[in-house]
Design a protein around this nucleic acid. Structure first.
Lengths: 372, 372
DNA sequence: TTGTAGGCGTTATCAT
DNA sequence: ATGATAACGCCTACAA
């Protein structure tokens, strides 16, 4: 019925907690008659001026207004608790002060950090943001794009799209709205992101420095651009270390916890051996850790493991998971800022790369050289 | 500068990853002239009918329209890629098909599950939701309420508000918009939530059944209604077990990871002793686990610990954290459903209580009775 | 079966 | 310094 509810742990449930609902007093029905909202007209009448004047006063237009009038208008507006109708304004001015944010899933720490960054910054500039959870489904994406278009959003931030053939959004948008993409993609919009390739490469070098030679790769789906980007970094890291790339060591997954666990389990079953895992997500890495532990492998002694994206979880598990951190809040914030800039006719760079940082924790501790 | 960026772990940073930005080709400037959007008028012209007809066809009004006309209009709309202007519609119909969601912080799993529930359900009914991250700040709440009011939202979902004096929102809203609250609050809106008191009480009983007698409480701020509710459950659980309530065992915190850690650290420094901790949030519990481990206390042997809200982290730490799970997605979904119902004049219950479930894991394993 | 006209709440243009 | 008026894009009586 609902895809977002976690399955209960095996046999862990207990005490179903008091029953359900309780239909108390059958609702306050229709709240009588709603007092009509005040409009410029109402305010004008009360202040004894024209609507034009009200509009001018409330919008701080030119100070060619008598102080007395200003005062009267403000007073009337206050008294009536007048709030301008943003939709009428949008209709008239042809800008909605609204930005759409397309996101695979707000439940993912990576993305809700982006969301916060976007929301905070949008708010600062007087913009409202509409969140669209696409679940990486092309049809949902299309539906949302149409919705955003009907809402006449001034701009759209694309996120996590980046699939081989993600051109389905290309013509639907643009024209009117300003678009910015976060992360790798195939569209011709300005973009912002990190050096994914370099980050993974650096991480691999770190593993090698710790004495690892057979480094497996726990990746995403081959079609995802972000996967391709990171895989390139993985290969570059190996090459730089003089290690031959072995395709059988690359395990695809959906980068979820369970996905990571399954991938590693089946790799182990298949008899694969490795002394390190380079994962393209913390979640998958966590799942991998589970699989390793269950297989009796010790971390980091027998297998080192490196995550990516630095989720809050990584510091809580044991051993603490090494990871790569990206300025995710800034991704969202900057994307919003760029849209605002474009809207104001200011030039924006076609692409921006923000710095990453390796976070070295215990899961990738160097191999101790045994006395022999 | 930005409050959402985690501090780097102590001395864990390394390799600052390529520098920053890269101002490439200086942006595609202004995208030439934007082709004007088609309107009903445009479509009507192309189809050779009146705007009325267009409107009727596109809104599937009565089938008293000739098939030929319908076809022509649809064709014209398709050809022009016509999308109705939702703001003009909202202005005319006086409904915005929009719902506001006030939430303390979307980063918290508890709340983003609510957000997903709300968003999914709103979308299903053709509504759009506007997220408002209040950070539990009264001033932000007020700002957002005004914003939502100007956006003429049809409904508002209040969340995590519940503070002693949260009546500041009371008069600002209502009148026009339908309001539903999730969780305890002091306002006269329909509400939905769980039996927080009963849940904590059951959890305490579980701890007692495991042989614990000195059960500390890791709570939130005294002013939060949710805290008061849960504290009552804590006391009820003790009382039912014949254990005297000891106020010194109640540790207030902000329920964050760090907050929980600090609270427990200072409790231990103060010489407090206990054989169990009942925490009002998983995050705080996680912090507490850290503090306990650093103090050399073993979990669950020396101290059992129980969380609340069942965040995804709880299953990943060691030992796995026992917790209480609430149907959070449903909270958001149901709240939205209620608003939609109210909007359609359907009656809704004044209050609804959804079931909780205890998730027993290793962190609250029963004390082994040592052979003596 | 289809068209005409007025108005939702605001702002911008042009007068005064 | 202030007002009358038109128009933004759409829907909906009311006509025909």
């Amino acid at each position: 019925m609902n895809p977002h509810v976690r399955e209960p742990d095996e046999g862990a449930a207990e005490s179903p907690g008091e029953a359900t609902t309780s239909p108390l007093p059958p609702a306050p029905a229709e709240p009588a008659v709603l007092t009509a909202r005040p409009t410029v007209k109402t305010v004008a009448a009360l202040a004894g001026v024209s609507t034009t004047t009200v509009s001018r006063v409330l919008n701080y237009k030119a100070d060619l207004l008598s102080d007395a009038t200003k005062a009267r208008v403000f007073e009337a507006a206050r008294e009536l608790n007048y709030k301008p109708n943003s939709m009428a304004i949008a209709l008239r001015k042809k800008v909605s002060q609204t930005i759409g944010l397309m996101i695979p899933d707000i439940s993912n720490p990576y993305f809700h950090q982006i969301a916060r960054g976007a929301e905070d910054t949008a708010m600062k500039h007087g913009y409202t943001v509409i969140f669209c959870n696409t679940d990486r489904s092309a049809s949902k994406e299309l539906t949302y794009v149409d919705l955003l278009d009907e809402k006449r959003v001034d701009g759209v931030i694309l996120t996590g799209g980046g699939v081989d053939g993600d051109t389905h959004l290309a013509d639907r948008l643009h024209e009117q709205a300003r678009v910015v993409a976060i992360g790798p993609h195939r569209l011709s919009y300005p973009s912002i992101g990190a050096d994914d390739r370099g980050a993974i490469q650096a991480a691999v070098l770190h593993l090698v420095a710790g004495g690892r030679r057979r480094i497996a790769c726990l990746g995403g789906q081959p079609g995802w651009l972000i996967h391709q980007e990171r895989l390139a970094g993985y290969r570059a890291g190996l090459e730089e270390s003089g290690i031959t790339y072995d395709e059988s060591l690359v395990m695809p997954s959906d980068l979820s916890i369970d996905g990571g666990q399954q991938a590693v389990e089946s790799a182990l079953r298949a008899g694969l051996s490795f002394d390190a895992i380079m994962s393209f997500s913390d979640y998958a890495a966590l799942g991998a850790m589970r699989a390793l532990k269950e297989a009796g492998l010790t971390i980091p002694d027998q297998v080192a493991i490196m995550g990516c994206d630095d989720s809050p979880l990584s510091q809580m598990v044991e051993p603490a998971l090494s990871s790569i951190t990206f300025p995710v809040w800034e991704f969202g914030s900057l994307a919003t800022q760029m849209i605002v800039d474009m809207l104001n006719g200011r030039p924006v760079p076609a692409s921006q790369v923000l710095p990453y940082q390796l976070r070295i924790r215990q899961s990738t501790a160097a191999l101790r050289v045994l006395p022999s």
